[in-house]
């Protein structure tokens, strides 16, 4: 009977989530341009994708995104929350609102806004020009070395607020007595953070890590809108590579293989996080 109740929801889930997943796996074993008849080629697509240096470049790009939009924001947010948790701040809900705001904006919009900021005649370069002089002005998104960190910072900007709010919500249910007790035992702020705050927000920390890690590994709209994966392949993520293969180059097989491999990478990443940040 209870299963009957979830049936309507499950049908939708199966139709729009499970079926596409299975179909993608099937496509990854085919040679197909999206239009002509499909030919089964076994593992060829995987061999092709794994031996393509661009795949590894895109994985490297992904890892940089993990650094910028998962590890750094989580580290920074932990620091901030560590400070906030032990004091009472007036107007906290206002700050929460402000921090969270960037996360509510679609990444595609964020990308376009930052394109303007990063432009040769954009605000950032205007500041640089005024402070350091013309020779330090850079076309950030058009520079093969700077484009990736520049986009990374956008990722940081976009996810930081989310992580802060997540972790802050975790601190709400830490009993204040614990801090008092720790202080009575002579704990300093650092000790307090590790014995009271951190254990108290473990669940939230884990969820933050999982959410930002998956976001970072599959980020697509940001590089598509900001740089089209360029210059060259400097900001091409696996998702973008997949999109290009499937929708533009008519290489559905290799594109699907990238999707499957990326999913495995995400699985492993998330499993790792779950292991590292155990609830107990």
């Amino acid at each position: 009977m209870p299963y009957l109740l979830i049936l309507p929801g499950f049908v939708f889930y199966a139709l729009f989530v499970l079926v596409p997943i299975v179909d993608t796996v099937r496509l990854s074993f085919l040679e197909w341009d999206g239009l002509s008849p499909q030919v089964f080629v076994g593992l060829d697509n995987y061999v092709q994708v794994l031996s393509d240096p661009n795949t590894w470049t895109s994985l490297r790009v992904s890892l940089v995104f993990v650094l910028f939009s998962c590890l750094l924001p989580v580290a920074a947010a932990l620091l901030l929350v560590g400070v906030i948790a032990r004091t009472k701040i007036r107007g906290l809900s206002f700050f929460r609102f402000v921090f969270f705001l960037p996360y509510t904006i679609a990444l595609a919009v964020v990308a376009i806004a930052w394109r303007w900021l990063y432009a040769q005649d954009g605000s950032l370069n205007a500041i640089i020009r005024a402070v350091f002089g013309e020779e330090f002005v850079r076309p950030f998104l058009g520079d093969a070395d700077l484009a990736l960190p520049a986009l990374g910072i956008v990722g940081l900007w976009a996810t930081f607020g989310f992580v802060v709010v997540m972790l802050l919500s975790g601190t709400q249910h830490i009993q204040k007595e614990l801090y008092e007790a720790a202080r009575m035992d002579g704990a300093g702020p650092v000790r307090e953070f590790f014995t009271v705050t951190l254990p108290g927000i473990r669940h939230e920390l884990r969820v933050s890590l999982v959410m930002t890690l998956t976001l970072a590994l599959r980020v697509f709209d940001l590089p598509l809108m900001a740089t089209q994966g360029g210059p060259g392949y400097a900001t091409t993520t696996p998702s973008l590579q997949m999109y290009r293969d499937v929708f533009i180059n008519g290489q559905i097989g290799p594109g699907s293989a990238i999707a499957v491999l990326l999913t495995i990478v995400i699985f492993v990443g998330v499993a790792l996080v779950n292991r590292l940040v155990r609830s107990e």
Binding site: I21, D23, T24, T214, V246, V270
Partner: peptide, 18 residues
Amino acid sequence: ALTALAAAVTVGATGCAG
């Protein structure tokens, strides 16, 4: 569940290729 969701979002992306 989170893991599965994340995976689903990624893999599902190509499932609509015509």
